[in-house]
Amino acid sequence: MTLLLSIIIIVLLFIIAVQSYSRRKMNRSLNEIQKKLSDIFEQKTTEKVLIQTDHQTIKQFLIQMNRLLDYNQQVIADYVKTKESLRKLLSNMSHDLKTPLTVILGYVEKLHLDNSMSVEERSQAISRLHQKTLNVITLLNQFFDLVKLDSGDYSFPLSKISINEVCRKNVLEFYDLLQSKNLRVEVNIPEQPYFVLGNEEALNRVLSNLISNAIRYGSDGGEFGLTVREDGEFIAIDIWDKGKGIAKVHQDQVFERLYTLDDARSPEFQGSGLGLSITKNLIEVMKGSIYLSSTPYEKTVFTCVFHRITY
């Protein structure tokens, strides 16, 4: 009986010792984790908490903690990006609105104060004033459109639409401008009808923006093209030119709001940096995708891809 009692006591003491050792080890691990977390937050680093341990609970704890750190770092990165976008938004809005508003004010003052203007001069000034006012309204509408798209306030009911017909109509609307730029036009739209689930108003805006961009920025290449083609279960629309193109370093950023190339800020290539962002949003509303491929003075292609429907 005494021997059995001694064995029980020894076993209990061993268990207590093991538990005590395990607790001390866990405390050391938790202290290391606490210190590492403190260093990460104080120094604002992107490190992870890496602690060697064989304790399964602590391992799972570390996995979830590092996931939380990843999320936190992503939130910080998004905040910095948003802050920079806001800064650029204010800068671009200031530039894009101040210039035409100054011109508008100049025309108004001239019409109001200059009594020596002839009827023809007054008519020209009014025409220019009207055009500048329309430009400002267009720019403001672009800003509001992007806000609405982001907030989900835009309603675009989807229905069966003919890609062929919409593309033909949009090319015809730019016929006079293409002719005035002396561009060689290559349009390949199959006779076989292709249908997608989309919104005709949204698709018109997409094509109008891409075609006008190709003419504005790519007319120095002397060619413009639009191709509708089958791509497996998808229908693709390629809008291309052979102008100066877009350098590789910019290609991943052109769809970001307010991103403009350096020459897009010049009077000749004035742009708000919103057109392609709105285009991308509209295509995504229609469950499609847009891609860019560009080799300067060889070929720059914007490709819109939509799911084909056959019913």
Rank of each mutant, 00 (worst) to 15 (best):
S94D: 14
E47I: 02
N182C: 06
L50T: 05
H55L: 01
D78E: 05
L50N: 07
L139S: 11
K44S: 14
Y175T: 14
Q74G: 00
F61M: 12
E121D: 09
K181V: 06
T82E: 08
D153E: 05
T138K: 12
V75Q: 09
T102E: 15
Y79Q: 14
E186H: 09
G106S: 07
I76S: 06
Q73S: 02
R87M: 15
P190K: 05
I189M: 02
I126S: 14
N135M: 08
S118V: 05
R184C: 07
T45Q: 02
H130V: 10
I104G: 13
T138A: 11
L172W: 09
L89R: 13
T99H: 07
S151Q: 04
N92K: 13
L146S: 00
L68H: 04
D150H: 06
K88L: 07
Y107P: 10
R122F: 05
L86S: 13
T46P: 01
L158E: 01
K132D: 12
E165Y: 07
K59I: 01
T99E: 11
L69T: 00
M117L: 15
I63L: 06
S94R: 13
Q131D: 08
L129P: 09
K83I: 04
K83W: 05
N188A: 06
P190D: 03
L129R: 14
A125G: 15
N141Q: 08
N135S: 06
N66I: 02
S180I: 09
T57D: 01
I58T: 00
N170E: 14
M93P: 07
N164V: 04
N135R: 12
T133W: 05
L111R: 14
S151K: 04
L149P: 02
L140E: 12
S118E: 02
D78N: 08
L69E: 00
S159L: 00
D114M: 07
C167T: 10
K148F: 00
H95E: 15
L177Q: 13
L149V: 02
A125R: 14
I137D: 07
S162F: 00
S162R: 03
I104R: 13
I58V: 03
Y175W: 13
H112P: 05
N66M: 02
T99V: 11
N72K: 11
N135Q: 09
Y175R: 15
Q131N: 10
V49Q: 05
S123F: 12
E47L: 05
Y175A: 15
F174C: 11
I104D: 02
D153A: 04
F144W: 09
N188I: 06
K110V: 08
N92D: 11
G106H: 07
K59E: 00
S127E: 12
L111Q: 09
V75D: 03
R122P: 14
K169H: 10
K88P: 08
N72C: 03
